[in-house]
Simulated scan of single mutants.
Amino acid sequence: MPISADFTSIYNRDWEIDFTQCAPNGMMKYTDLCNIIQLTAGYHAELGGISFTEMQQFSQAWVLSRMRVEINRLPKWKETVTVRTWIVSLENSRSVRALEVYANGEKIVGCETYWAVFNTDIRRPEALALPHEHYVKYAEQFSTAERVRKIMLFETVKTVKKHKVVVSDLDIVNHVNNVKYLEWCLDTIDSQILLHSRIEAFEMNFMKELTLGEEVLIEEMKTDNNPVFSISRDGKSCFALELQLKA
Rank of each mutant, 00 (worst) to 15 (best):
T144H: 00
K29C: 03
V160P: 08
E146K: 13
D234F: 09
V117D: 04
S59T: 15
N119H: 06
K246L: 03
N104V: 05
G49A: 10
A23C: 15
M221T: 13
W77L: 02
W184N: 05
R84C: 04
F52C: 00
K180F: 03
L153R: 06
T159I: 05
H134M: 00
S89V: 06
S4Q: 10
Q21A: 14
M27V: 13
M55C: 12
E79M: 04
G26W: 13
V179H: 04
K161L: 01
V165A: 06
C238S: 14
N177I: 03
F52T: 10
M55Q: 10
M152W: 03
E215S: 14
E183K: 09
L210D: 13
T31S: 12
I189Y: 00
I50V: 15
V69Y: 00
D190S: 13
M55S: 09
W62F: 01
F118E: 00
C34G: 13
K246G: 15
I231W: 00
I218G: 02
V109L: 00
T8K: 14
G48H: 06
L74H: 14
D32A: 12
D32E: 10
I193A: 12
L243C: 03
A5Y: 13
L195R: 06
Y135A: 05
M221H: 07
V165F: 05
Y11H: 13
L195H: 11
C238P: 05
L64E: 03
M67I: 03
L195P: 08
T85Y: 00
D6F: 08
R233A: 02
A139M: 10
L64G: 08
F142L: 04
K208E: 11
S89M: 04
D18I: 02
C238K: 01
E126R: 10
V216S: 08
D169K: 04
I37F: 04
R149L: 01
G110D: 02
W184F: 15
I3P: 09
S65A: 11
I193Q: 12
E79V: 08
L47R: 09
V160G: 10
L128E: 04
S95Y: 02
P75G: 12
N119V: 09
E203W: 01
Q21E: 11
V88N: 06
I87P: 05
A247N: 15
T31E: 10
V179I: 14
V101L: 02
F154Q: 10
W86K: 05
F206W: 03
A98S: 14
S89F: 00
I36D: 06
V109Y: 00
A139N: 09
S191F: 09
I10D: 13
S168V: 15
H196G: 13
M152A: 12
R13S: 11
P75E: 02
M221R: 02
D18F: 08
V165S: 02
F142A: 01
E112T: 11
R123V: 10
Y138D: 08
A129N: 09
N92K: 15
M55L: 07
H175Q: 09
K164G: 02
N12P: 08
Y138M: 00
V69D: 01
T8S: 15
A129F: 05
E106H: 05
T223D: 05
N119M: 00
L212T: 07
K180T: 13
W184I: 05
V96E: 10
C34L: 12
V228Q: 09
Q57K: 15
A116F: 01
K107C: 02
R66E: 09
M204F: 00
T53A: 14
E183S: 14
M152L: 06
C238M: 02
S230C: 07
I3N: 04
Q141N: 06
K162H: 15
G49N: 07
